[in-house]
């Protein structure tokens, strides 16, 4: 399995736009799974024109329950809990606050009396939708956070694990905005990361923070400068050299992008001859070259 992660730091640079279009091009040649790991704002299905996600399963996080016949009220569980989800009122059994619990399971393993039983807390849902667009088949795995829940990293881990169970040639992961550990979970153990940025001081600042992670993790990194015509790209080339970026592609600002976006038809399908589609074809060809040299 060849693993690719599309990320970027700043929001709205075009991560999902890139992920969806590349996934469709790769799906013509290989079994491809697109994984939407932006649990807070999952939009890949919207760009693909899908209204109803299929095969819903809950994202289950561990939640402690107390077996009162074993619990001695020793307080170890409350002590090891980092998120303040366990309260030990004097003389009473521990009280659990589900929304605060990150599901880390430290209390479960720390309890000296095996008094903690495994229950779950539903963080959100993971979906698996099979898509066919113009004879191209693609599997979309989508993680969706319930509004009001906040523990995104274990949810990203859960969603990725679900996607990894599918037998496929290519696993293409699309992340949310940011640079926290929910992004690193999507970056570990991948063959290629594509950073989507824009030529503005904001895009460049956030891109640099992502490059620090990919560079130290030793991941092969490419950059796509989206809306490349709106600013000066030279700074991006300069920084890229410092962080061993292998390839840089530019996607200029183009009205085809907006109209395909609003019509919910990916550009590589809607405008096959658009200059933007040409860039995507070039990127897909380079990826296919890499996949082949990896022995597929």
């Amino acid at each position: 399995m060849f693993r690719i992660t599309v990320t970027g730091g700043k929001g709205g640079t075009g991560k999902s736009f890139v992920a969806v279009n590349i996934a469709l091009l790769l799906a013509k040649h290989y079994r491809t799974v697109l994984v939407d790991l932006d649990l807070e704002a999952p939009n890949d299905h919207i760009l693909l024109g899908i209204d109803k996600l299929k095969n819903e399963e809950p994202i289950k996080l561990f939640l402690p329950f107390i077996n009162t016949s074993k619990c001695t009220k020793c307080g170890v569980c409350a002590k090891v809990c980092d998120t303040g989800a366990i309260l030990l009122p004097s003389g009473a059994y521990p009280i659990i606050f589900p929304r605060l619990c990150s599901g880390c399971k430290a209390c479960y393993y720390a309890c000296p009396y095996n008094a903690i039983i495994e229950g779950y807390h539903v963080l959100g849902y993971v979906y698996r939708t099979n898509i066919v667009i113009e004879n191209t088949e693609l599997t979309l795995v989508t993680g969706v956070l319930r509004e009001g829940e906040e523990h995104v990293p274990p949810g990203v881990n859960y969603t990725r694990k679900k996607a990894e169970e599918i037998e496929t040639d290519i696993l293409l992961m699309d992340t949310g905005a940011g640079t926290g550990n929910q992004i690193s979970i999507a970056l570990k153990n991948v063959d290629l990361t594509i950073i989507v940025t824009e030529p503005t001081p904001l895009g460049i600042h956030d891109m640099s923070n992502v490059l620090k992670i990919t560079n130290e993790m030793g991941i092969r990194t490419w950059i796509i400068i989206n809306k490349s015509s709106i600013g000066d790209t030279s700074k991006i080339y300069e920084i890229s050299e410092k962080y061993n970026v292998e390839k840089i592609y530019e996607i200029p600002y183009h009205r085809d992008v907006v109209s395909s976006y609003v019509e919910r038809k990916p550009i590589v399908i809607k405008y096959k001859n658009s200059p933007i589609t040409r860039v995507f074809n070039e990127i897909a060809q380079s990826i296919i070259g890499l996949v082949r040299s990896n022995g597929k």
């Binding site: 430290a106 990293p153 570990k188």
Partner: peptide, 29 residues
Amino acid sequence: ACQFGAIEVRNGKYYVNKWICEGCYTCSF
């Protein structure tokens, strides 16, 4: 045991990915 996927195996040896680890203690227990 790690619920965050922070522990990786490379060539049969286990390592903590410091970009993911939240330090929750679960692995140490």
